[in-house]
Amino acid sequence: MKIAVCVSHVPDTAAKINVGADEKSIDKNGVSFIINPYDEYAVEEALKTKEALGGEVVVISLGGDEVKETIRKALAMGADSGVHLKKEGYFDSYATAKALAEELKAQNAEMVFFGKQSIDFDSGVVGQMVAEMLGYNSVSVVVDLKIEGNNIRAEREIEGGKEVVETTLPAVITAQKGLNEPRYASLRGIMQAKKKTIEEKEAQTGDSRVELLKMRKPAPKAPGKILGSDASVVPELVRLLKEEAKVI
């Protein structure tokens, strides 16, 4: 089975985010980048699927040259080959989905894994859009997956519980934490990854529909009140919550 995984290259979760001088992107100075944490679950699930059912795993990432590092990371975990869809600058979720869908069509991938969300722009939409563009079935925010023959049974997280979803191949799955424990890249994996090919292609994104007008930091909160250091201030806290904040 041809299996594909789409991965994005994002700032580390611990990174301090400052807005750049253009007020449209972040200041990348001193920010280290990682593979999107949810995409690690996606890569792991793709590898597990290959191990169970056979086939090959191709990793795809869209962006500037820096995304190659993230493709290598997935190759070191065990993916077979990589595709870098090259595009600098700004593109929205729709354009991202479009470029990925074009490539996936060319790859003829039957099973495509995404993360549930890219922790840079946090939209959580690209996987489902790609599925619709390809005419594939999709299940998002998946925490458990079983593939038998043509049939898929997936559990997805919803408010206060889980939904069990049944569908068939070809399909898109977006991975949530809990789906699996991503493996570490072994030293051997890292060495082998250096020899695997990353094909570079011009990305066919089409036009973006969403225009970024401005990026800004959230307004800093006014310093709060420290009411005291023991339970004696609890009545005052309750009074403030009722009368000042009006939230209880």
């Binding site: 979760t13 946090d122 225009e211 930091k217």
Partner: peptide, 14 residues
């Protein structure tokens, strides 16, 4: 639309 887990905000239009 908040980005980077709410560490920044974007103002966008479609």
């Amino acid at each position: 639309h908040p980005v980077y887990a709410g560490k920044a905000l974007t103002d966008v239009k479609i």
